[in-house]
């Protein structure tokens, strides 16, 4: 099934200043859209970065599982 074909324009927004680097979103993203970023934020944590945005199907698991309200998915 080509999930990419049916997808609408999405944007994964990561608020790096709220992130505490627990990596739950990276470990549980079903399509491995996120990865650990190379840069640290103001508090010394490594926030996630989007590496495969075109794979995202907008399941919102990262948004709901994030303990810090740092990720949100915007559907256009």
């Amino acid at each position: 099934m080509h999930l990419q074909d049916t997808k609408v324009q999405r944007m994964i927004e990561i608020n790096e200043e709220l992130c505490k680097g627990c990596d739950i979103c990276i470990d549980f993203c079903p399509l491995e859209v996120l990865a650990i970023s190379a840069s640290i934020n103001r508090r010394g944590y490594y926030p996630p970065e989007v590496v495969n945005e075109e794979k995202c199907i907008g399941c919102r698991l990262c948004e709901l599982v994030c303990p810090e309200f740092a990720i949100t998915i915007c559907n256009e």
């Binding site: 505490k20 944590y45 599982v65 303990p67 810090e68």
Partner: peptide, 10 residues
């Protein structure tokens, strides 16, 4: 970091 309390709040 990683505490489940935030997920419950979410």
């Amino acid at each position: 970091p990683g505490c489940g309390c935030g997920t419950v709040l979410n």
